[in-house]
Design a protein around this nucleic acid. Sequence first.
DNA 1: TAGATTGTTAATCGATTAACAATC
DNA 2: TAGATTGTTAATCGATTAACAATC
Lengths: 206, 206
Amino acid sequence: MTSAEIPDIVISRLPIYLRALTRMAADSALPTTSSGELGKRLGISSAQIRKDLSHFGEFGKQGTGYNIRDLINHLRRILKVEHEWDVAVIGAGAIGHALAHYNGFLDRGFRIQLIFDSDPAKIGTRLNGFEVYDVARLSEMLPAHNIHLAMLAVPAEAAQAVANELVQAGVRGILSYAPINIAVPETVRVQEIDPVVQLQRITYYA
Amino acid sequence: MTSAEIPDIVISRLPIYLRALTRMAADSALPTTSSGELGKRLGISSAQIRKDLSHFGEFGKQGTGYNIRDLINHLRRILKVEHEWDVAVIGAGAIGHALAHYNGFLDRGFRIQLIFDSDPAKIGTRLNGFEVYDVARLSEMLPAHNIHLAMLAVPAEAAQAVANELVQAGVRGILSYAPINIAVPETVRVQEIDPVVQLQRITYYA
DNA sequence: TAGATTGTTAATCGATTAACAATC
DNA sequence: TAGATTGTTAATCGATTAACAATC
């Protein structure tokens, strides 16, 4: 009954639940919600939500539903975002720039700490207050700052090589914006964001 | 036997296959590949790749595998990206800026045509050569330019209202960067990109 | 109490995989 | 021919849903 056996498809829905609940907490005066209400909002069946949550404990009350703030706290703990993770951004181009300026990270568990680039013209400049460091210093600086998460926003040609360095530097998870499949040891988790993949999932149905 | 009954999970893998094949075509001198080779590259079983493709036809040859260029063309046709789609970007902030400068769209089936913002300071300026238009002109300009796809890069508070306007303006698909669940009629397809959701899928396993 | 909603069970539904005849 | 690999079938595996006793 370790967490290892919980299906990844379940895990992938938890951040969606957490996001919707956080919004409900901000929008609504009511302290509670139900699997029915949450499901309607997300287009998911109430049974699926209850089943998903049941992998982790009993968070609701019959007749009443779920206390929103409590469930938020449970999900934060489950997803390990009760505290902030320090994150490095690799690549100070347009995507790195957008990431550095995005203000939606902090209250959802992530704090950008370091930004790297390989372009001498960018190294030493500042991006939203962050100094841009030489990517050559990855292996030195990530361990020194105890950083285990990285967002990869370099050109596709460079992505695999940089990913290798990240792994060497002790990174355990990579959010990759490069439109390629990067290969990493199975101890390292990769999630990728490729807008074209998402767009093509739309056009198929056109 | 219409395409409507093909599982969405299958559709979601096709852009990944297409992307990997395009890379293989560029990298390798060999004209063919096999489900085994492609699967190894993507961490997917060869059986699954053959099964997925079998929904659409017979594209391979026993003993030989698949001609890479042919399979690319089949997938482009299936995903309806043989020709480019004109796309609008709503929001000329950091994300809109990154999208406007991204040069990975055109050869994968998408061409940014119009950019909108609500900020008077941005309206009329240029972003990578594109003029930024007043978002109030959405409902006039999208139909005039025959645009049915949009990338939504506005603040979360504005996202639902803008999505409503997009739907009104005849948009059939939305790629949303807003960290909320936007509600649309079921004739409209939405895909969302939320880096925090992806990061939380990583930290769970930490 | 009556109404609402949970957590869980069992049934259903759907996706993945193993295996192999066909054949290049 | 021998080796390789497809497309497909059937079996297996896993996820979703319907239903309901428990209970707030």
